[in-house]
Amino acid sequence: MVITISNLPPHVTEEHISDLLQGDSRIQRITFNKEGNPDKVMALVQIDVSRLEAQFLANKLNHAYFEERHLDAYTPLFMGR
């Protein structure tokens, strides 16, 4: 499954994203989309979990704060396995 996390700062790293997900060992890949507004980066997190668990993780991150930024997280309907 894929979890998207947006409104991240431009200097965000894979380690930051891993920390947000508490070092979850099921993370397979993290990629960043820096197109559009360069001050608001989006992370695409490929993680080996069910859709239900991905939605649970996204809900935990949605509206969380990271470096004084209000994050938006969700699981896209047509991305994943």
Results as ranks from 00 to 15, higher is better:
Ile47Pro: 00
Asp39Thr: 11
Leu44Ile: 10
Glu35Ala: 12
Ser6Trp: 04
Val45Tyr: 01
Met42Val: 15
Arg51Asp: 02
His11Lys: 14
Leu61Asn: 03
Met79Ala: 09
Asn33Tyr: 08
Leu44Asn: 14
Tyr74Trp: 14
Thr4Pro: 01
Tyr74Glu: 07
Lys40Leu: 15
Ile27Trp: 03
Leu44Ser: 09
Ile17Met: 05
Asn33Phe: 08
Asn62Gln: 06
Met42Ile: 10
Glu67Gly: 05
Met42Pro: 00
Ile30Gln: 03
Arg81His: 14
Leu20Arg: 01
Lys34Tyr: 06
Ile27Asp: 05
Arg81Ile: 14
Leu52Asp: 10
Pro10Asn: 02
Thr75Pro: 02
Ala43Pro: 02
Pro38Glu: 10
Pro38Val: 08
Val41Gln: 01
Arg69Ser: 04
Asn37Trp: 06
Val45Asn: 05
Phe32Ser: 04
Ser50Gly: 00
Asn33Glu: 10
Arg29Gly: 02
Gly23Asn: 08
Arg81Asp: 14
Gly23Glu: 00
Ile27Thr: 04
Ala64Gly: 02
Phe78His: 08
Ala58Asp: 07
Ala73Thr: 05
Lys34Leu: 07
Phe66Arg: 07
Asn59Leu: 09
Leu20Phe: 09
Tyr65Gly: 05
Pro76Asp: 10
Pro38Lys: 14
Val49Gly: 00
Lys60Tyr: 03
Met1Tyr: 03
Glu14Tyr: 07
Gln28Ser: 00
Leu52Val: 12
Ile27Leu: 02
His70Gln: 15
Glu53Leu: 05
Glu14Phe: 03
Leu52Cys: 03
Leu57Cys: 06
Glu15Val: 13
Met79His: 08
Ser50Arg: 01
Lys40Cys: 15
Ala73Leu: 06
Gly80Cys: 05
Asp72Leu: 13
Tyr74Met: 11
Ile5Trp: 07
Ala64Pro: 02
Pro10Thr: 00
Arg29Glu: 10
Gly36Trp: 01
Gln28Cys: 12
Ala43Arg: 00
Arg26Glu: 01
Asn62Gly: 07
Gln46Asp: 13
